[in-house]
């Protein structure tokens, strides 16, 4: 299965894939000798690919000698891991209590209306994925959301169209 990853793509894509694979292999090397290596390795895969591609999980399964059903069980248990690719920009609306009390639900609803996607959905053009997230711990800025690395705080639903225009 691994071979397919490096075949059938253009030269640059191939180089990109190799580079990504190398990172995964390095992570596997780093953690394989320790107990409980699976979750740290999955973090690396999620980090490099933005989700957990099945083919990469097959490599992990072989390397760590773990059955795929177990890996799938772990991957589907933790919300941080995703088994499907996500949009270019992930909008994470904080649904912690402080944000909720200050109107995070209305904010989330507004995004959903503007983007025409449900929560956890990705827009057709693959530009945005809308997520409700656990407390980001920026309660002072409530209600707060992140898009990529950027934090937007002290928002009202009317800010939504303008925020989306930035991307």
């Amino acid at each position: 299965m691994e071979e397919q990853l490096t075949s059938g793509c253009g030269a640059t894509a191939e180089a990109d894939i190799d580079e990504k694979l190398e990172k995964i292999e390095a992570a596997i090397e780093q953690f394989r000798s320790i107990k409980g290596a699976l979750i740290p390795v999955l973090h690396e895969v999620q980090d490099v690919y933005g989700y957990l591609p099945e083919k990469i999980l097959q490599i992990v399964s072989r390397a760590l000698n773990l059955p795929m059903s177990e890996i799938y069980g772990v991957a589907s248990f933790y919300h941080f891991f995703s088994l499907t690719p996500k949009g270019d920009n992930i909008i994470r609306v904080c649904m912690g209590t402080a944000c909720y009390i200050k109107g995070a639900q209305a904010l989330l609803d507004r995004f959903s209306t503007e983007l025409k996607v449900p929560v956890q959905g990705t827009t057709e053009d693959n530009k945005f994925t809308l997520e409700a997230t656990r407390c980001l711990g920026a309660c002072g800025l409530a209600p707060v959301l992140t898009i990529g690395e950027k934090v937007h705080g002290r928002l009202v639903p009317n800010n939504v169209p303008k925020i989306l225009k930035e991307y």
Partner: peptide
């Protein structure tokens, strides 16, 4: 899993 080590099925989701 435990007995047969086949691991065809497991818990998924939460």
């Amino acid at each position: 899993g435990t007995l047969q080590t086949v691991h065809a099925i497991g818990f998924a989701g939460r």
